[in-house]
Design a protein around this nucleic acid. Sequence first.
DNA 1: ATTGGCACTCGGTTGGCGAGAGTGCTGGAG
DNA 2: CTCCAGCACTCTCGCCAACCGAGTGCCAAT
Lengths: 339, 339
Amino acid sequence: MSEERRLDVLRAIVEDYVRTREPVGSRILTERHRLGVSPATVRNDMAALEEAGLIAQPHTSAGRIPTDKGYRLFVDQLAEVRPLTVPQKRAIETFLSEAVDLDDVVTRAGRLIAQLTGQVAVVQYPSLRRSGLRHLELVPTAEGRLLVVVITDTGRVEQRFLDVPVGMDDGTLGELRARFNAAAAGHRLTEIGTAFERVTEAMPDEHRALATAVAEVVTAALGEESEERIVLTGQANLARSSMRFEQGLRPVLEALEEQVVLLGLLTDMTDDAGVAVSIGHENRLAGLTETSVVTSGYGSSDGDTVAILSSIGPTRMDYPGTIAAVRAVARYLSRVLPS
Amino acid sequence: MSEERRLDVLRAIVEDYVRTREPVGSRILTERHRLGVSPATVRNDMAALEEAGLIAQPHTSAGRIPTDKGYRLFVDQLAEVRPLTVPQKRAIETFLSEAVDLDDVVTRAGRLIAQLTGQVAVVQYPSLRRSGLRHLELVPTAEGRLLVVVITDTGRVEQRFLDVPVGMDDGTLGELRARFNAAAAGHRLTEIGTAFERVTEAMPDEHRALATAVAEVVTAALGEESEERIVLTGQANLARSSMRFEQGLRPVLEALEEQVVLLGLLTDMTDDAGVAVSIGHENRLAGLTETSVVTSGYGSSDGDTVAILSSIGPTRMDYPGTIAAVRAVARYLSRVLPS
DNA sequence: ATTGGCACTCGGTTGGCGAGAGTGCTGGAG
DNA sequence: CTCCAGCACTCTCGCCAACCGAGTGCCAAT
């Protein structure tokens, strides 16, 4: 009983089941896959695979379907990488390069993933905490309010209002702006706290209060976990006939709306290098036990990960295709990101 | 055969059907609604209502359900306004007032609507074209690129990159910024084109090219239809057991993802005054023929509509409750919006 | 105009039956 | 030791018939 053929059988089962979404039996398998052996032999292999927990049968007299564990083995060892077609690559490139600002880049990336994979796409905005500061702007508004605008080198713009008790003139403001910008230039947003401290200390007494207030607002705004934003696209794909979830799609949609939790999941599973896959019950989120998640980090061209993008679909998904699409978009995105 | 009682019957049918989501028959009706007449009489009224196209029966021996036309009559004449409870109002107020910036306001408004109505919420960002300009910022980035940041009085921030062929010094940039800001102060974004023209004409020759380029980018960016952004929340509500669509929810989800078309629909149906309702086939969008849309404009406290928010659910929805929720959120939103 | 009575219609459910698909097992061949 | 053909067994699915109940429409009586 060759070990190798058993894996061939598993691969054949996964591929067939993904394509037809019907449990696959021994006869069909031998007809469609030139395994060179008879159905009876395949049945023996199947029994072994089932014993190992890699496949299961929905009911006694039905074919087999892969288990989560089976998919895992398939993804790790059996799946053949299938690069995107040239037209697909070109489509990604042109569609992304047409984007006019960061919002546009992120939503377009989402559409792209949703379209290429036929599944749900999740794209995170470049994380503030992993970005650098490009520019800090202070805009006085009518009454005693100050608008603080932070522009990162990944293109994000954040704004906060600040109530300033004392009046201030444009000169002070200009100086403040210049000093802060000089102090922060090139630093990661997480590191500017100390740089700002030096600035505030150097300010003349009468303006020190204002300076500390600004510094506080900026660091507070950028430290907030809640400011991690994501974009969701392609939910309509979940309702396609090809996706039937045992539990219905309610739990899935609900899980997707818990953006904070969802983002946590994605962050945890993404290691810096390349694409990560989480299958079925490997997802700690209850609503996603019938789905698999394929994610990749993306970032500036120097390889730093500043955000995550991913595709979510049923465990019975086209893993090679999805992985290829996610990887490709992540790469192009890294190239296109303002840096 | 009193006309008035016939309408009572219609109202009773709508209310019962909305609550139980089951076709309602003559017996049940008399039991639950103290109409003071017997089932047989109700049957006669029902026959008349059906003749008038206000109700229908799914199959011969089932109760009646309202038609789109029936809902329309109900909404226009029969529905009793039901104000929100005090706790609900308070919840709206506190939840919205906790928002830290415009993004936050819009997403919170969406969550609120989705939660209050148990349906899908659509919230449009304040339209650029109907906003005023608060501040224009020019930020030079490393190479010969200029980042143009536009801040509106509704709190939106838009940004565009601009390639500038010639070198430029901070002084020129500062002057340009000052002039543009002075010229645009207080104007609607749609009107700043002419104001900008005067600025560019007044510039010395060597900087005129740069000035026109900036003016062009700003007006182009703000004129784009595509820059109308919306936020969608509560899709998970569509999958609740209480919502069964004949055609499944695929067409609904698809319609919701066509953001441009959807926004067009909402814009068309919103008249400046108050809440508008569009029922079933009144929606021109094919995917939304089984749904009803309740929208309201919102804007700054002076009553101008700068954006739209709405709730979308099955035609069999709680109209009074939905209308009340949409109206309330729109009002609070108008108060909270920076102005 | 309203009402009680009555025959009728039709969808939904239940139970039984047969066909088909797939399995596990066993015994024999290479 | 591996492979394979044959066979009995199991279980789902689709079909059909029968039945039940809810609800209607109509009519005659008040």
